[in-house]
Design a protein around this nucleic acid. Structure first.
Lengths: 267, 267
DNA sequence: ACCTGAACACCGTTCAAGT
DNA sequence: ACCTGAACACCGTTCAAGT
């Protein structure tokens, strides 16, 4: 079965004297007067849903229009084009963290807790939208001082303000921002890739491509032997461990930074 | 200027009695008999060059055919389709490391040196092909036990065999493989993204999208203040530092692993 | 004000036909 | 054996026209 949505017209005869509106009613669509009007937000949300369900390559302006009960051309009143829509999609999912109660705006229990919550918030977004996350990860951000996956002004501000309030120097906060984003990007992209994220619906995969055991044992002795171990999914524990280590490293950097601030004349 | 290649026919009158071959000669093309035959390798190499030059979105089967002096349909004798071609492209650039003399097959100076060389080899690939690297990073690998960016059986085997030879236990080698890939993916993807990697030719960017300073100062006080510092490019040093830290972590893990092997009955 | 029809310049891919 | 022409079912996007 392909990703194409089923054609609702194909089941049963339709009186050809019906006017368009009546045919629409037969098909179960709301008449134009009753359906809520299009808006940029509704379009972006619908695009997120569509990618979650069918994968990025399946999202076309025409199919998205169909999803919204509208012709593709109508979308262009609210969105400049497909590329901008994808940017908006990436921004939208990362901003879902705004409604995540575990994620806080201000450190109230130390910066480590603050960053822990933030990291887990991003991870929840990635796992909720595994097919959208590669977009968050690899679309070029709108400014060189935004780095994926924290690719919105709001969250970078929250990050920096939080660390500032926790006593970080500017230098230390920026340094932490860099290592934090690198950490999130690597771990979460691997995690969603392992989920088979990139491609569309799973119907194409057919997992028939795996190298045969015969092929493997010829030369790839280590891979063959460790196959099982390599396939084990330890994403969650790995994430926790690596996050702890990252926080330790930041704490260390913080000490060095503070010492440098006291003045370079110390023993 | 768009990415579309210029039409060579458009400059000057052409005698309509010329046969196709002569017109081809006028255009400076080799006659079919003289040009070297198509091959999967030539197609993949050409695709890499094309993406390097014009970006992934600009690569179409038709334009790639044109680049090779052939109609698009001819490509399908050597490549099953566009998606498979992109997989081959990702595999091809990562395998460029085969010809990188700094990268070694066997650890001859300790595993740390071995991993240092491997990491820098992958980084050189990423910097040589910044527009291809997102493909290496986010295409789902052909088996669940291959993780980007080390997405080829050959390199995973080299990695595992190398650490094995250096005395790593299976468990330790697999654990190192996981953290190594996570590290590379995060850092290199950020680095190429910062280079403006994803999109096509630079002619579309026009850097007109940056939020205005006025907009910034309203609410985004920390981002505004740290703008300059955030834009600084420390990719190279960051990579070295983070790599050192990763190797330290692996060394630590190695000790714990060895101790666990001696038997859990130790004091 | 909001949406659609028709059109344009593209796509990927198949397959019978040419050399 | 290797490539092409013609065709099919799609794309994104524009714009005049409809309600």
């Amino acid at each position: 079965m392909s990703g194409r949505p089923p054609d609702a017209d194909s089941s049963g005869p339709v009186d050809p004297t019906d006017v368009d509106a009546d045919q629409a009613l037969v098909r179960g669509e709301d008449p134009p007067s009753r359906r809520e009007p299009l808006s940029r937000e509704r379009i972006v949300d619908s695009a997120v849903d569509y990618i979650d369900a069918h994968g990025l390559p399946s999202l076309t302006m025409r199919r998205l229009g169909q999803e919204l009960g509208v012709e593709a051309m109508a979308l262009y009143r609210y969105v400049p084009g497909r590329e901008d829509l994808l940017d908006a999609v990436a921004g939208s999912v990362i901003n879902e963290m705004e409604h995540d109660d575990e994620v806080v705006d201000q450190p109230h229990d130390g910066w480590q807790d603050f960053l822990q919550r933030l990291a887990h918030g991003v991870r929840r977004v990635a796992l909720r939208h595994p097919k959208v996350f590669p977009l968050v990860a690899s679309r070029p951000p709108e400014a060189p001082w935004l780095r994926p996956p924290l690719r919105s002004l709001d969250w970078v501000e929250t990050f920096l303000a939080g660390l500032h309030a926790a006593g970080f120097s500017d230098r230390a906060a920026v340094s932490a921002y860099r290592s934090f984003t690198g950490f999130l990007l690597g771990h979460l992209l691997l995690e969603v890739a392992n989920l088979g994220a990139d491609l569309g619906p799973l119907d194409v995969i057919e997992d028939a491509e795996e190298p045969s055991p015969r092929e493997l044992s010829a030369g790839y002795t280590h891979v063959a032997r460790l196959r099982g171990m390599l396939s084990e999914d330890h994403a969650a524990e790995e994430f926790e461990e690596a996050l702890e280590e990252l926080l330790d490293r930041i704490a260390l950097m913080l000490q060095l930074d503070a010492r440098a601030d006291e003045g370079p004349a110390s023993p």
